[in-house]
Design a protein around this nucleic acid. Structure first.
Lengths: 198, 198
DNA sequence: ACCGTAGTGGCACCGAGTGCCACCGACAAG
DNA sequence: CTTGTCGGTGGCACTCGGTGCCACTACGGT
C-alpha cells in the first residue's frame, strides 16, 4: 500500500498547527493584527518563522482555522437539501447548520469574526476565502434552477446570501442573541424582498 | 491670504497622477497584476519608485481612479432621491446614475472592473474600498427608515445591493449589453425576493 | 547498517511600503 | 538680486510578508 502512515505521528503536524493558531489569535486579540509580526507569532508558538509559513501560507490564514473543511461541509449540506424546499430556504438552512457551534466554541468564533470583520487586512483577505463559498452556493442554485453557475441569478443569490450571512454575523457580534436567529432574520428580509421597506 | 496658488502649477500633480494610472493600467492589462512591480510602473510613468508611492498609497489603488469622488457622488445622489420612491429603487437609481459613463470611457471601465473582479489581490483590496460605499448606502437606508445605520436592515440592504451591483458588473463583463440594464435586472431580482425561484 | 520521507531551521532573496534627508524649482519679500 | 519658504522629487536605508534553497534530524521500512 502506498502512502500509509509514516513520519512523526499522524497528528503531530495538526498539533503544531493548533499551537500556532492559538498563539496567533491570542496576539491578534491583545494587539492590532498588523502590528503583530509573523516572527512574534512564531516565537509565541515555539517554532521558527520559516516553519510558521509552512503551516500557514499567510499571516491572515491563521484566523480562519480549517476553512476549507468548512466550505466542504457547506457543499455537502447544500447537496443534501430537499428539492421541495425553496432555494433560499435551503441555503439558509445550510448556513445555519454549518455555523452551529457548541456553546464552548462560541467565544472563539466571536473573536475570529470580530477580527475578520474589523481588521482591514483580514476584511480584505476574507473576500478571497469567501469566493469559494460563493462558488459552492452558485453551483447549488444553478443545479436547482437548471441554469449556468455563472449566470445572473446563481451569482446574485450566492453574493447576496453571503451578504445576509455577513450582516447576521455583524448583528450577532454587536448583540447577545443567537447566531441562528440573526441568520434567519437576515434571510427572511432577503427572501421577502425587504418587506419592512414597504 | 494664506495657502494661495504656489508651486509647479495647480494641476501638475494631477497630470503625473494620470500618467501613473495610465502606465499602471497598461502594464496590468498586458501582464498579471502581481508580476508587475511598483518599480516597473514607476519607470513606465517616468518617475521614481518613491514618487509613485507618494501619489498612490498602494499598487492596487492605481486601478481605482478617484474612487473617493465616486463615493461622494453616490452619496449626493442618494441624498437627492425623493422619499416617495421605494428605498431599493432609490439605491438602484443612484447606482445606475453614478455608473453612467460616456461610451468612450467604457473600454477603460471594462478593463478596470475586469482587473478588480478577477485578480485576487485586487479582489481583496476591493473589500476595503467598497466599505465606504456600504457605509454611505446604510446611512441612506437608516435615514429613510428612521433606524440606526448599523442595524440589520440598513446593513443588509447596503451589502446586498452592493452584491447586486457586483453581479451586474460580472454579467456586463461577460456579455455585451448595457450596464444599466444589468443593474436593473439584478436590483429587480433583489427587490422582488428572487421571483424566478418560485 | 541503509535508505526514503517529512518536518524543521537558517539563510538569502524579492517586493511592498515607509521614514528621513537632501535637492530643486517656483514664488514672495527684503 | 538675494534670501527664505514651500511643494514635489529622488535616493537611501529599513521593516515586514512571503519564498526558494539547503542542510539537519527523526522516523519507519528493508
Amino acid at each position: 500500500m502506498i502512502g500509509t502512515v509514516t513520519g512523526p505521528a499522524p497528528d503531530a503536524r495538526e498539533a503544531t498547527r493548533a499551537r500556532i493558531e492559538a498563539a496567533a489569535l491570542d496576539l491578534f486579540t491583545r494587539h492590532d493584527f498588523e502590528t503583530v509580526t509573523a516572527d512574534e507569532v512564531a516565537d509565541a508558538a515555539g517554532i521558527s518563522r520559516r516553519t510558521f509559513f509552512r503551516h500557514f501560507a499567510t499571516k491572515a490564514d491563521t484566523v480562519w482555522g480549517d476553512f476549507h473543511a468548512h466550505v466542504l461541509r457547506l457543499e455537502g449540506m447544500l447537496a443534501a437539501t430537499s428539492d421541495d424546499q425553496p432555494v433560499l430556504a435551503s441555503i439558509c438552512a445550510a448556513y445555519v447548520e454549518v455555523n452551529d457551534y457548541a456553546d464552548a466554541d462560541l467565544p472563539l468564533l466571536r473573536e475570529r469574526m470580530r477580527l475578520i470583520l474589523t481588521e482591514p487586512a483580514l476584511q480584505a483577505h476574507s473576500q478571497v476565502r469567501y469566493a469559494d463559498v460563493d462558488r459552492v452556493v452558485a453551483e447549488h442554485v444553478a443545479r436547482r434552477t437548471g441554469t449556468r453557475a455563472d449566470g445572473l441569478v446563481p451569482r446574485l443569490v450566492a453574493l447576496s446570501t453571503r451578504a445576509a450571512a455577513t450582516t447576521a454575523f455583524e448583528t450577532w457580534l454587536a448583540g447577545d442573541g443567537s447566531l441562528a436567529d440573526d441568520l434567519h432574520a437576515a434571510f427572511d428580509q432577503l427572501a421577502g424582498g425587504f418587506p419592512t421597506l414597504r
